[in-house]
C-alpha cells in the first residue's frame, strides 16, 4: 500500500496545508486504508493534547504591559537627568570637557528653556515654534535668539553621557539589588550589591557614533563574558534619546545590528 508516502500529507492535512490535488490523493487513500485513517486520528488527538499544554496568561499581564507602555511614551520622551545630578561634579566636569565652549548654556538647559521661551513670547512668537524654527530663518544679530539655540539643542539632542545613563538604567535599574555607579572614562561601571555582598560587576561602554551619525553605540561588558555575549549585549540610542535599542531586540530578521546604523 506504500503508506509512508502519505504520512507527510497526513501531517500537512492537520495544518490545513494541502493543495487541492494533495487532498484528493490523500482522501482516496484514506477511503481504502484503515491504518492511515487510524494514524490521522491519532495525530489529530496528539495535536489536541499538545495544545492543551498551553496555560492561560495571568489576567493582569496585559494591564501590566500597558502600564509600562504608558510610562514609556513613544514621543517626546523627557530627558532624565536625575542620575547625572547624583553623580554631581564629576559628571558635570565631563560634560564640560565634551561639550567644550557651548557647554554652559547646555548645562543650564533646564533653567535656560523657560527663560528663552518668555523672551520669545514677549516678541509675540508662539512658544512651541521657537523650538522648531530653523537657524537660518531666525534674524541674525538678534540677541534674544541666542539662548534659543541652546534650548533647541538640549530639547532635541541627548549628550552621549545622557544616552549612557539610559543604557545603564536599561541593563541594571530593575535588578532588585542596590546599585552603585561610577564614571570611568567613556564607560560607566555598575556594581550590584546585596548588603555587603557584591552580586555583580559590569560596565557600559560608549563606543562612539554610528556610521550614519544618528545613534550613540554602547556595549555592556563584564569579566568572563563570552564572545557571543560580547556580540549580543550591544545597544544603540538615537541622538534624541527616544529609545534604547538592544541587539537582542534584533529587529528585522536577517539584519545585522551594525548594518542598521549605516546609511
Amino acid at each position: 500500500m506504500n503508506c509512508e508516502r502519505y504520512t507527510p500529507l497526513i501531517s500537512a492535512a492537520l495544518d490545513g496545508a494541502l493543495t487541492q490535488e494533495e487532498r484528493e490523493l490523500l482522501e482516496a487513500h484514506l477511503r481504502q486504508c484503515p491504518d492511515c485513517r487510524a494514524l490521522m486520528e491519532q495525530l489529530m488527538a496528539q495535536d489536541q493534547l499538545l495544545e492543551e499544554l498551553n496555560e492561560e496568561p495571568p489576567a493582569r499581564l496585559k494591564s501590566r504591559v500597558m502600564e509600562q507602555v504608558h510610562t514609556h511614551p513613544r514621543r517626546a520622551r523627557p530627558a532624565q537627568r536625575s542620575l547625572w545630578k547624583r553623580w554631581g561634579a564629576l559628571a558635570a566636569a565631563l560634560v564640560l570637557v565634551v561639550a567644550g565652549s557651548t557647554a554652559l548654556p547646555q548645562l543650564a538647559g533646564e533653567e535656560a528653556a523657560p527663560q528663552a521661551s518668555s523672551a520669545s513670547l514677549a516678541e509675540g512668537t508662539p512658544r512651541v515654534d521657537d523650538r522648531v524654527v530653523p537657524f537660518d530663518m531666525q534674524e541674525e544679530g538678534d540677541a534674544a535668539v541666542q539662548p534659543n539655540l541652546a534650548t533647541q539643542e538640549t530639547a532635541s539632542d541627548f549628550s552621549p553621557e545622557q544616552a549612557l545613563e539610559l543604557v545603564v538604567d536599561r541593563v541594571s535599574a530593575d535588578s532588585g539589588y542596590e546599585r552603585t555607579l561610577a564614571l570611568d572614562g567613556d564607560a560607566c561601571r555598575i556594581t550590584l550589591t546585596d548588603g555587603d555582598t557584591v552580586i555583580d560587576e559590569s560596565a557600559v561602554e560608549y563606543l562612539g557614533l554610528s556610521d550614519n551619525g544618528e545613534y550613540y553605540l554602547f556595549r555592556w561588558t563584564w569579566e568572563g563574558q563570552t564572545d557571543e555575549e560580547a556580540d549580543w549585549y550591544r545597544y544603540a540610542v538615537p541622538l534624541d534619546g527616544s529609545a534604547v535599542i538592544w541587539r537582542g531586540e534584533s529587529l528585522p530578521d536577517s539584519t545585522d545590528f551594525d548594518q542598521m546604523f549605516v546609511q
Partner: peptide, 19 residues
C-alpha cells in the same frame, strides 16, 4: 513577556514589516 512587549513598543520604528 512584559519586557518583550516593552521592547516591541520602543522598537516599533525598527519593525519594517519584513516579517
Amino acid at each position: 513577556v512584559q519586557e518583550a512587549f516593552l521592547n516591541a513598543w520602543r522598537g516599533l520604528d525598527f519593525f519594517k514589516g519584513d516579517s
